[in-house]
Simulated scan of single mutants.
Amino acid sequence: MLDITAPVLTDAKLSDNNETVSQSGVLAVEVTSRSPRPLPAEQPGPGANLFQRGVLMYVVETLGGRPFHELTPQEFTQVTGAGFAGTVGLEFTEVTGDRVCAHWPVSPAIHQAHGIVHGGAYSTVVESLASVGAAVWFGPEGRVVGVNNNTDFLRSSSEGTHYGEAIPLHRGRSQQLWQVAITDDRRNLLARGQVRLQNLAD
């Protein structure tokens, strides 16, 4: 039985003159092993300390303790930019419980192998805008969490500035449904998604 606690086998050589065969005709192999090389230490990104403490703690410490739903568009840009969504470079321009707008420059950092925007970037934008809008609308009642993200990619793009707009389709006691449209400089529709969110009352 394989001992998964054993060192990783990285080198193998034949015993004696590399041609020793046992009486049963099975090649006898001498195996040497060495411990696996340690992985290089990860370099924390600019938002690592922020997210170790948590976004809400960041809001308390840095933004004067105001509730999440009272942040300005510039502050939402700062908060979301410190995490995963920061790779996209979202800049929020309007944030209310009825509408959320943002734009971002397209760069190779969000391209896929064929030089066009990765679908995951569009899904990230859809999730981010919908979540912010839902959180602002729910306000002091509690917090919201996404439970489904369904994003369709309609047209490819590789450069320019992209724009996102999120509007609510349904806002109920326990769930919300938000729709997000993503367009380019010419207002061509590039992607459209819906996010369903659960309201978690305090």
Score class of each variant (00 low, 15 high):
residue 3 D to W: 06
residue 5 T to S: 09
residue 5 T to E: 04
residue 7 P to Y: 02
residue 9 L to G: 09
residue 9 L to R: 03
residue 14 L to V: 04
residue 15 S to T: 10
residue 15 S to A: 15
residue 18 N to K: 14
residue 19 E to Y: 06
residue 19 E to F: 09
residue 20 T to N: 14
residue 22 S to W: 05
residue 25 G to A: 11
residue 29 V to R: 02
residue 29 V to I: 10
residue 30 E to F: 05
residue 31 V to P: 07
residue 32 T to I: 14
residue 33 S to L: 14
residue 35 S to R: 15
residue 36 P to T: 03
residue 37 R to C: 03
residue 39 L to A: 15
residue 42 E to Q: 13
residue 43 Q to A: 06
residue 45 G to K: 00
residue 45 G to C: 03
residue 47 G to D: 05
residue 49 N to M: 09
residue 52 Q to L: 13
residue 53 R to C: 07
residue 53 R to I: 04
residue 54 G to M: 11
residue 55 V to K: 03
residue 57 M to L: 10
residue 57 M to H: 12
residue 58 Y to A: 13
residue 58 Y to Q: 08
residue 58 Y to V: 05
residue 61 E to F: 03
residue 62 T to K: 15
residue 62 T to Y: 07
residue 62 T to N: 13
residue 63 L to C: 01
residue 64 G to W: 13
residue 65 G to C: 05
residue 66 R to A: 13
residue 67 P to M: 03
residue 69 H to I: 00
residue 70 E to R: 12
residue 72 T to H: 12
residue 73 P to V: 09
residue 73 P to K: 04
residue 75 E to T: 09
residue 76 F to V: 02
residue 84 F to N: 03
residue 85 A to H: 05
residue 89 G to R: 01
residue 89 G to A: 06
residue 89 G to K: 02
residue 90 L to G: 03
residue 90 L to C: 00
residue 92 F to S: 12
residue 94 E to M: 05
residue 96 T to N: 11
residue 97 G to R: 11
residue 98 D to S: 13
residue 99 R to E: 06
residue 100 V to L: 01
residue 101 C to P: 01
residue 101 C to D: 06
residue 103 H to T: 08
residue 103 H to N: 13
residue 106 V to S: 02
residue 107 S to V: 08
residue 107 S to C: 00
residue 109 A to K: 10
residue 110 I to N: 04
residue 111 H to T: 00
residue 114 H to D: 04
residue 114 H to N: 08
residue 115 G to H: 01
residue 116 I to R: 04
residue 117 V to N: 05
residue 120 G to A: 05
residue 120 G to Y: 08
residue 121 A to T: 01
residue 122 Y to E: 07
residue 123 S to F: 00
residue 123 S to H: 00
residue 124 T to Y: 08
residue 125 V to T: 11
residue 125 V to C: 12
residue 126 V to G: 13
residue 127 E to S: 15
residue 128 S to Y: 01
residue 128 S to V: 03
residue 128 S to I: 03
residue 129 L to H: 14
residue 129 L to R: 11
residue 131 S to D: 10
residue 131 S to P: 08
residue 132 V to E: 12
residue 132 V to A: 11
residue 132 V to R: 07
residue 133 G to H: 11
residue 134 A to G: 10
residue 136 V to R: 05
residue 138 F to P: 02
residue 138 F to M: 00
residue 140 P to I: 02
residue 140 P to F: 07
residue 141 E to D: 11
residue 148 N to A: 10
residue 148 N to R: 15
residue 149 N to C: 04
residue 154 L to T: 02
residue 155 R to C: 00
residue 155 R to G: 00
residue 157 S to H: 07
residue 157 S to C: 07
residue 157 S to L: 10
residue 157 S to N: 13
residue 159 E to Q: 09
residue 163 Y to S: 08
residue 163 Y to L: 08
residue 169 L to Q: 14
residue 171 R to N: 11
residue 177 L to G: 02
residue 178 W to D: 12
residue 178 W to P: 14
residue 181 A to K: 15
residue 182 I to G: 02
residue 183 T to E: 05
residue 187 R to V: 03
residue 188 N to D: 12
residue 188 N to S: 05
residue 188 N to A: 07
residue 189 L to E: 11
residue 191 A to K: 02
residue 191 A to P: 13
residue 193 G to E: 08
residue 193 G to T: 06
residue 194 Q to N: 10
residue 197 L to F: 08
residue 200 L to W: 14
residue 201 A to Y: 04
residue 202 D to A: 10
